[in-house]
Each structure stands twice: as structure tokens, then as C-alpha cells.
Design a protein around this nucleic acid. Sequence first.
DNA 1: GATTAATATGCAACAAATTGCATATGGAGT
DNA 2: ACTCCATATGCAATTTGTTGCATATTAATC
Lengths: 177, 177
Amino acid sequence: MSLKHAILVMLDQKPHSGYDLLQQFKESVGYFWNAKHQQIYRQLKILHDEELIAFQSEIQSGKPDKKIYAITQQGKDELLRWLKEPVATNKINDALLVKIYGADSAPIEDIASEIERHIEIHQNTLNYLLALEKKYLSLSSNEQLNFRYPYLTLRRGILGEEAWLRWAEEATQLFKK
Amino acid sequence: MSLKHAILVMLDQKPHSGYDLLQQFKESVGYFWNAKHQQIYRQLKILHDEELIAFQSEIQSGKPDKKIYAITQQGKDELLRWLKEPVATNKINDALLVKIYGADSAPIEDIASEIERHIEIHQNTLNYLLALEKKYLSLSSNEQLNFRYPYLTLRRGILGEEAWLRWAEEATQLFKK
DNA sequence: GATTAATATGCAACAAATTGCATATGGAGT
DNA sequence: ACTCCATATGCAATTTGTTGCATATTAATC
């Protein structure tokens, strides 16, 4: 759907290789977009065929060659078109909540330990995001201005994870009884 | 992946037709699972072929016939197996955040009005979920006990939407300037 | 009388995402 | 020497999800 546009947004900021994009999806922007490397490379090929992006091969000593992709004017046009268009709200499909909804049908300990496991993951994510926030807050106010929109998405991540963990407290309360 | 198991969970509570399931996905459990009718009917066919569910046709005066699906013993076994197995945390792909991340590239008013639009949708969702909560809280404590797990998923929805709206306040602050 | 909404189900084509496999190099650790 | 990890890219098959189309009835609205 809009992996295409997620990539265009990234490339509009600065050129990236497929591997770079993968790292971004795994690290900084992973809170709001995720994709596997196979999907990224395939999409890059499609975007290149559509002439929305272009690349230059970068020969690296040691490591394999990198293809550095940059957005073209046509790509910028397409991005602008998409940015102006309304997007649908997020479709939520949360398997953990499916499990909890059906918790009557399973041993309670299994569900409880599953929640424990997820709490740990979410706590780690939150810590990571808070560290990113700290880094942002230590920037000069001029630099902060440059990153205000990415920072806003980071805030979404932080508020989202905090809310998740508050919910998890309610959940563990229920499963303790 | 687990539309299959979402359906099994629902059918384990009580028999449903495909149309019933669709309504559930659109209404009560829509906060954590969504599917289109075509996908549901196809999955029901697959589950029936796998003998995880069985159905009885119900002749209705006026309306077309209904196929009422119920879970089989094999289905229950499969559900239990899945419930015991760890599930991956949610993959998040949020197009609105992609837009905001790339907000530098678009007219600020377009992004701002898009956020306004989403606020309205999330506010409506929250109101709907709060109404469901009110209904739950008016039940006798005995009935509440029966619905404690579905209620926990409802709490997730409420806390999630509240957090989203708090974030949106930060967002509108930023876009006002 | 004609249209629209709600109920009820489904096929077919297409798009998107996942899983499995495959290749290649260099550096670090055992 | 051997293995593992990070870097770097990609094809093919399968599964999952979306979009378009199709059908049939009743009740309500215009």
C-alpha cells in the first residue's frame, strides 16, 4: 500500500541504500513502519522501473557494492500528490488481544506468561524511544526545529508504549487473581 | 495469519454465521481485529475443509439462508495449540505517521487538516468504546466476571484511543505555530 | 413505482507481505 | 582453521488481504 510512499519520504530527506532503509525501519522509524528486506528491495526495483527514484552504485572496499537511491523529480511529484491525499486510519489486527479475548479457552498461566513476555518487549521499546527523545532534547533549538516532525512521530511512539504498559498493569492485576 | 484463529476464538464462544462474524469485526472486536466479508467467507470455507468448523443451514423467512458455523473438537484442539504458542508483537504500519514524518515536503495546512480529520474519527471510536464500557459496568458482578477478558480488550481500546488523542493535542500545538 | 439499505453469501483477479532460499565479503571471536 | 555476525542484494513460492463483481430477498424511504 504505502511502503512505496514510506520509501519516497525517506529518500526525500536524503539518499539511502536498500540496506539503509532496512536499518531505519528496524531502528528509528520502526515505530510506525516495518518491512522485511525482500519487500524493500523489490519495492525499490518497482520504484526504479517507474522512474520515481534513481540510483548510483557505490563501490566499497571490502563490503559488497551499495546501490544508493535518490528521489527523482517525478518521485517528488508523486510524493506531494500522496501527501495531499487523505489516508485511511490504521487497520488494527492484534493477535495478542485475540488471545486474551479467548483466554477462557486456555490455561491461565500460558496467557499470563505471554503477557509478561510482551511487557518486556514493550518496556524495551519504550526505553529505546526515551533514549532517542533524550538525544533530541539535547540538540540546539535550531536543530530541534529541523527534526520537529520526526520528533512528533517519536512522541506518538512514546505515548503509545506508555499507554500499552499502563494497560498491561490492568491485565496483570486481572491474571493475578 | 491469525484471522483463522480470530474466527476460531469467536466460534469457541458460540456459533456464528459469516455475517455475524463480520458484524463483530465491525463492532465489538473491531478494535483489535478487522476483516472484509470476502476474506471471512473464504476463511470459513478453508476452516470447514480442514474440519476445524462445521455448519448447519438455517432457513430464515424473508432473508437468505444463514450458515451457522460451530467449532469442532479438532478446531478446539487447534485453538488450544495456538493459544499456548507465543505470538509475535504487533507489526505497526501507520501511514499517517509516514505523512507527518515527511511533513516538510507538503503544504502544512494539508497535514493539519488531515490530523483534524483523524482526531474526529478517533474521538468517535473512543466515544463508542466508552459507551460499551458503560454497558459492561452496569452488569451484575456475576455477569461482569463472564466478560472480564473481552472487557480487558475493551480497556486496551480505550487506553489506546485516549493516548492517541493526547498525542494529537501535541500535534495540533505544533501545527498551530 | 423506484431506489436504497440491510441481510446474506460467494468467485475471481490483483496487490501486498511472508517465508524460504541463495550469494558474496570481511572482521571478530573461539 | 572454523564459525558467526554484519554488510549487501535479490528471486521464487506461498499466504494473506484488497478490489471488483455478482446474486437474492425484504423493508423502508422518496
